[in-house]
Computed example of a mutant assay.
Amino acid sequence: MKWQHVQDNWKAFYDAITDRWPNADEDELDEIDGDQRAFVDYIARITDQEPGDARDDVRDWMTGELPSDVVMDPEHDNHSIALSEKYLPDGEDEYDDDSRFGDDR
């Protein structure tokens, strides 16, 4: 994943952050508000690591999957729908009702 995913969906990552770093505090995460440098400094502080080691730890964490709260977010879904436009025939709207296929009622 990219940091932009983390920053754009910061609160959705709280569970993933506290799973990886159990000492992380939600109030302090609120203050960080998706700032990567502040987050790395925070991880260094709560894990008693050097900033470079904390940065490597965060990079390692970012190789994981996006949390389901982010994947299921309507904004993420709408982005995926918009990208599907390239697979549709000319003149068809990617947001059209597809009830004939049984997925909308």
Score class of each variant (00 low, 15 high):
Phe13Met: 08
Asp93Asn: 15
Lys11Ile: 10
Gln49Val: 00
Asp93His: 12
Gly64Phe: 01
Pro67Lys: 02
Phe101Asn: 05
Leu88Met: 10
Met72Gly: 12
Val40Gly: 01
Gly64Asp: 01
Asn9Trp: 01
Asp56Ala: 12
Ala82Tyr: 15
Pro51Trp: 02
Leu83Val: 09
Ala24Val: 03
Thr63Trp: 06
Ser68Met: 10
Trp21Arg: 01
Glu50Thr: 07
Tyr87Asp: 04
Glu31Ser: 08
Asp48Val: 07
Tyr95Glu: 10
Asp19His: 10
Ser84Lys: 11
Glu75Lys: 09
Val58Lys: 00
Val70Pro: 04
Asp56Gln: 10
Tyr14Pro: 01
Met62Ala: 03
Lys2Gln: 10
Asp8Val: 03
Trp61Gly: 02
Tyr95His: 13
Asp96Trp: 15
Pro67Asp: 02
Lys86Gln: 12
Ala54His: 03
Gln36Met: 11
Arg20Thr: 14
Lys11Trp: 02
Gln7Asp: 08
Tyr95Ser: 09
Asp77Phe: 14
Asp60Gly: 12
Trp61Ala: 03
Asp8Thr: 04
Ile43Glu: 06
Leu66Gln: 08
Glu31Gly: 09
His76Lys: 15
Val40Leu: 04
Asp25Trp: 01
Ile32Ser: 05
Asp15Thr: 10
Asp30Glu: 09
His79Ser: 15
Glu28Thr: 13
Glu50Trp: 07
Pro89Phe: 14
Asp19Gln: 12
Ile17Trp: 01
Tyr42Glu: 05
Asp90Ala: 11
Lys2Arg: 11
Asp90His: 11
Asp15Glu: 13
Pro89His: 13
Asp8Phe: 04
